[in-house]
Structure formats: C-alpha cells, structure tokens
Design a binder for these strands. Structure first.
Lengths: 149, 149
DNA sequence: TCATATCCTACTAACACGATAGGCATAATG
DNA sequence: CATTATGCCTATCGTGTTAGTAGGATATGA
C-alpha cells in the first residue's frame, strides 16, 4: 500500500507554494526545480490541483500558481483525496466487474471494514494542515542547514 | 488507494477457512469455487499464506488447507501485512531512486506523516480478528437468505 | 497404481503509472 | 506589435505491476 508519486508530488507542490507565498506567484518551472519534479508532469498535477480548487493561476508572462486558500485552511486529506480518490478502499477486481456494481450481502462486512479504515486515515489526515507541514519542513531545513528547499 | 485483489482474495480465503473449520481441510479447488477465485491464482496466494504461517496444508489425496491458528488469534492486519508489505507508505518514485536511500532532512516531515497514518491503519486492523469477520459474514448470509458462501 | 491433492516455476495479457512531447492560448513587456 | 514567458490541453510512450494462465513435479490416500 503505497501513496502514488503523483500524490506525493502534489503534496510537495502545495507545501512549496505555502513556503513561497511572499514571492507572489510561482511558475511551474520554478516549483519543478525547487522540488525536483519533472516539469511537464508537474503541469498535469497543477491542472488537477486547480480543477480541485486548491490552487489558482495567473496566465501569461509573469504568471504562475498560488494557493487558493490560506495554508492553515488546506488539509493534507483534501489534497490526497483529490489525487487518490478513496483514501483506502477495496479493489476493483475482475470478479467485481463481472458482478457489476451489485453489492451482494456478503460484501457488506468488507465494505464496513474498509470504511472504518478509511475513516481512521481521514481523521488522521484531516487535522494536519499544509501550514503545519510547511512549518515542519522549515524547521527541518534550519536545524540541518539544508536550505535547498 | 486501493487494496490489491490478491489481498482481498487472501482475506476471503482465510475467512472461508474459518467458516469451514468443521469440514476438516479444504482443497484449494473447493475454496476457489466457494469464493469465486481463479484456482491457479488462489494456489499462489495459499503458498504465500502458508509461508507466512497463516495456513497449513496437508498434501496428497484428501489433502487441503486449514488455519494454523484459531480464527480469533488471526488479525486482519497480519493477513494484510503479509500480502501488502507496508500498510500505508510513501511512494518509491524515480526521484527517490535517483537520490538513493539518502533520507534527506526535508523528507522527515513526510516520513513522520506516513508513519502516523500507517499506525492508525494498523491500530484499526490489528483489533479485527478473522473470527469477527467470519461472524459478520455468517450474520449477513443469514439475514439475507444468501447461503452461497 | 491411480486419483486427488499440494507445490513450484515460468509465462503472458492488460493495465496503471510515471513521464515526455508538442502545440495552442494568454498576458506582460519593450 | 512582436517577442517572450507563461499556463493550458491532449496525445503518446516505456516500464513495471497486477491479475491471471499453464504445465508439470511431488506427495498421499484408497
């Protein structure tokens, strides 16, 4: 069970934007080099983030991206949910496709199981905001004299 | 974030074995038809479950599989961990492969994040036993007159 | 000795993922 | 107004993982 790179990149991007709010907008290329993410891949991620209402953009020369809301109002969960869909769910197996979306009664215990786990994950990620994450990143950069971020 | 079919099948298999403990051992073919899992695929899963000490087997004619421990002593977490490895972890991206396993200081906030989530998931799955799951399945089969399991 | 099992390895088709590419649309700037 | 810097959009591609198949060796009970 691993988080996708896309989600990881998205999270880093949003945190990066929080860390560079003072600079005004950030061009995709700048974010990409700061976070070491393939530019064109990042562009796609930024499109999703924009469609999801997490970032906004300014087009044309001197344009770029910026957070749609204050970092303290953006949860890690909201970013993850946007990128991953369900935070923790059952497989969409061939077997399940065969059966259609007929949720047989013997599926119920499983659905309940996954729903509980997902709730636990959500509870955990909902209360961590992007500002907390950026604070932590800042702190770790300072204590280790690593200013590359 | 979806659980793999393999894990799903494994869980169903273990629960199935719990439900059919009285019948003695269950041949892979019997489990496969009861749970509608491709037989040969199931065989591989059973090998993993055996290697992981969750089931034991009896070879030859009249042989089959059975649980190595009482269902109440087997947690959903143990099955999942065996099949999935980490319950919830960071991606192993190309970027990360480039950097080697050099856990840079700015990775720490992320590692902490994932570790917390994984702990939450584990806590949740650790306390659900296979006997609880099989009880639930039995209950749902009865209330809906669906005896096919 | 035959039927019924597990056990083991190799292979394959389909799909998801990570990434790349190219070009259009828009806006600032000289 | 031309140029340049940017976002926006779609298509494509390589690779690895996943889900599933296949075939046979090995063991055991009748």
């Amino acid at each position: 069970m691993r988080v996708s790179s896309k989600t990881d990149y998205a999270l880093r991007t949003v945190i990066d934007l929080a860390l560079h709010m003072d600079d005004g907008v950030s061009a995709a290329a700048r974010i990409a080099e700061r976070q070491d993410i393939p530019v064109k891949f990042l562009e796609q991620i930024l499109m999703i983030l924009k469609a999801g209402g997490i970032v906004e953009s300014k087009r044309g020369a001197g344009g770029g991206y910026f957070l749609a809301d204050p970092p303290s109002h953006i949860s890690v969960a909201s970013v993850m949910r946007l990128m991953e869909g369900r935070l923790f769910g059952p497989p969409v197996s061939a077997q399940r496709r065969r059966a259609g979306s007929v949720s047989s009664s013997k599926e119920l215990p499983f659905e309940e199981l996954w729903a509980n786990v997902e709730a636990a994950v959500a509870e955990n990620l909902e209360k961590i905001s992007i500002s907390e994450m950026s604070d932590r990143v800042r702190k770790h950069s300072h204590t280790s004299l690593d200013f590359s971020i």
